[in-house]
């Protein structure tokens, strides 16, 4: 067997490390890193990028030490030499290919966000899904409250239908006592006070707006709020952006504006969408970025209560800089 060529392996390894560092640097410089990693994780990426550059250079220097270096200084670290990449040449080529290919793929393949085919496989969440858990947990406890709530709901919808403007005006004035009611229900469910405080405050803030604009920043919070307090928002104007997506059983006037949410990386990405009903819906293919504005209504989809934007006007928009949305904490 040929002696293990330390210098060659150190050299190749050093270059691979520099390759990885260049890939990360390239992604950061072009801004395309947002397709792969959530902003909160970026410090870790900077850490590994600098470490790779540094280690890569160290490795290249290590390779300049020839193996006729007789005191074996750089290897005589009394460790087991279990890191050597052994085997016939084709095995070595395979092993290094495993490291080289991701770098080449990273540079050469287009940087794109996940699309609707992934969304379909992941399963779309219409709303944040938090509503179901709550109702599941507190079904018995809340029964009485809920029934009176929904009666009130019907009457409120009637109010709105009779006199939309008057009703919306009255929303502002009545929001205080609505708040108290929310507070009672919510505090019943949670121990963590900051949790309801946060959403109650945000919901209150949003109800004061003429048009509710769902942005990248408040996207997930708004999804949660619509699940918690959907009834309070019925009849409000809303504006929301996302990529288009359809479930198989959708009618031709139904479409979803969806966003992927990401915590660390795309492996944990989930899909959150809002159902839109509009005569313009069929004009848009899947994976088109749209902005839709319309009126919030309540509907059921597959037995789940979901917000739906009715009579929406839709127009196509540019893909946003950040294709994903992120949790706000």
């Amino acid at each position: 067997m040929k002696p293990y060529d330390h210098s060659f392996h150190a050299f190749i390894q050093g270059i691979i490390l520099i390759g990885f560092a260049l890939l990360m640097l390239g992604l950061i410089l072009s801004g395309n890193i947002v397709y792969y990693i959530a902003p909160t994780m970026m410090p870790f990426i900077y850490f590994s990028m600098t470490t790779f550059f540094f280690l890569g250079i160290v490795q290249v220097f290590r390779s300049t030490k020839k193996e006729d270096d007789h005191d074996h200084d750089h290897t005589a670290c009394n460790c087991e030499h279990d890191h050597q990449i052994n085997g016939p040449p084709w095995v070595k080529v395979m092993i290094y290919s495993i490291f080289i290919l991701p770098v080449i793929f990273g540079f050469a393949l287009p940087d794109r966000g996940l699309d609707s085919s992934v969304a379909a496989n992941r399963g779309m969440q219409l709303g944040s899904g938090i509503n179901e858990e709550i109702s599941k947990k507190s079904a018995n406890k809340k029964e009485t409250v809920e029934s009176s709530d929904s009666e009130e709901e019907v009457s409120r919808v009637d109010d709105y239908l009779d006199d939309p403007e008057g009703y919306i005006d009255s929303l502002g004035s009545s929001s205080d006592d609505l708040q108290d009611e929310d507070h009672y229900v919510i505090e019943d469910l949670y121990d963590e006070e900051w949790f309801d405080d946060y959403y109650v405050e945000l919901a209150e803030e949003m109800m004061d707006e003429d048009i509710i604009v769902v942005t990248e920043k408040n996207y997930l919070d708004m999804m949660t709020i619509f699940d918690l307090y959907l009834d309070k928002f019925i009849g409000k104007e809303i504006e929301i952006a996302g990529f288009t997506f359809r479930e198989r059983d959708f009618d031709s006037n139904q479409i979803v504006a969806a966003r992927f949410s990401m915590t660390c990386c795309t492996a944990d990405a989930g899909v959150y969408g809002t159902l839109i009903e509009s005569s313009e819906a069929e004009n848009y293919d899947d994976d088109t970025w749209i902005s839709a504005s319309g009126t919030i209504e309540k509907d059921e989809y597959n037995g789940q209560t979901v917000p739906v934007i009715t009579n929406a006007t839709i127009f196509e928009i540019e893909e946003p800089d950040s294709p994903y949305v992120y949790p706000s904490f």
């Binding site: 992604l27 792969y36 793929f105 287009p110 996940l114 795309t266």
Partner: peptide
């Protein structure tokens, strides 16, 4: 590259994402 099937690009995106994410750790 742009005409590559979407599925391939998706695999690549998730693959790189996992690798880049795991490397610092």
């Amino acid at each position: 590259m742009e005409s590559l099937p979407n599925a391939m690009v998706n695999v690549n995106t998730i693959f790189l994402s996992i690798v880049i994410e795991a490397i610092p750790f």
